[in-house]
Simulated assay, not measured.
Amino acid sequence: MAAMGSYLKKHTEALVKDVGIEPACQLTGKSKATLGRYYSDHAEHADRFMPVDAVAALEEAASYPHVTAALAELKGISLSFDENRRNTKEKGGVNSDVIALSQRFAMLMGEYQQSIQDGVITVNEAKRLLRETTQLQKVLIDMKLHLEEETGDLSS
């Protein structure tokens, strides 16, 4: 449970930072201190988690559903968006997605190569790798949506 709690807290922090602390306070009606407690890794806050209604309000404003995606990953579920959230304004279909996928993967591998050079991946390096992984995941979701659109299969 401790590892799962820590994982959820890290994604809660990513969600709040994605939206911004001030807007997050306004959207949830919570103070900065309260929001901070939801993702604090201190022992006294180990059992505090953000309420679902606050998560929903923040994920509506965020660029990515960080907490929902984390919950899905913990359960072995993959998500796809029901609204179009393109990585770029370009509409080229699957061919453009393949190019974007290649570019994102190259960026991830570049980050990995830099991170592993000294044999240790630091916390900051891990955060950069996580950001690139998340961006790669977004491209894959776009590609999945395009493939479903082209095949007429919207039931995966």
Rank of each mutant, 00 (worst) to 15 (best):
M1G: 12
M1S: 11
A2D: 08
S6V: 04
S6C: 12
Y7I: 12
L8T: 01
K9T: 07
K9F: 10
K10Y: 07
H11V: 12
E13D: 12
A14M: 03
L15Q: 00
K17T: 14
K17E: 10
V19Q: 00
V19H: 01
E22C: 11
E22L: 07
E22D: 08
P23W: 01
A24G: 04
G29F: 07
K30P: 03
K32V: 09
K32R: 05
A33G: 10
A33W: 07
L35A: 02
L35Y: 06
L35R: 06
R37C: 02
R37W: 07
Y39V: 12
A43E: 03
E44A: 09
H45A: 04
H45V: 11
D47I: 11
D47P: 02
F49R: 02
M50G: 00
V55E: 03
V55R: 00
A57Q: 06
E59C: 04
A61S: 02
A62S: 12
S63E: 15
P65Q: 01
A69D: 13
A70H: 03
A70V: 07
L71T: 01
A72G: 02
L74E: 04
L74S: 08
K75M: 14
K75S: 15
S78L: 07
S80P: 10
F81P: 11
F81T: 14
E83H: 12
N84Y: 15
N84T: 15
N84M: 15
R85F: 06
R85D: 06
R85W: 09
R85C: 03
N87Y: 05
T88I: 14
K91I: 14
K91Y: 15
G92M: 10
G92D: 15
G92L: 12
G92W: 09
V94K: 08
V94R: 10
N95E: 13
D97R: 03
I99M: 07
I99G: 04
A100G: 04
L101W: 06
Q103I: 14
Q103R: 14
R104L: 02
R104K: 08
A106T: 07
L108Q: 01
M109T: 07
G110V: 13
Q113P: 04
Q113F: 13
Q113S: 13
Q114L: 11
Q114R: 10
Q114T: 12
Q117H: 08
Q117R: 11
G119H: 08
V120E: 13
V123G: 04
N124Q: 09
E125T: 05
E125C: 02
E125P: 00
A126Y: 10
L129I: 06
L130N: 08
T134M: 01
Q135M: 10
Q135R: 10
L136F: 05
L136P: 02
K138Q: 09
V139G: 01
D142P: 01
M143E: 06
K144A: 06
H146G: 11
H146P: 02
L147H: 05
E148G: 12
E148Q: 14
E149L: 13
E149C: 10
G152M: 10
S156N: 14
S156G: 13
S156P: 10
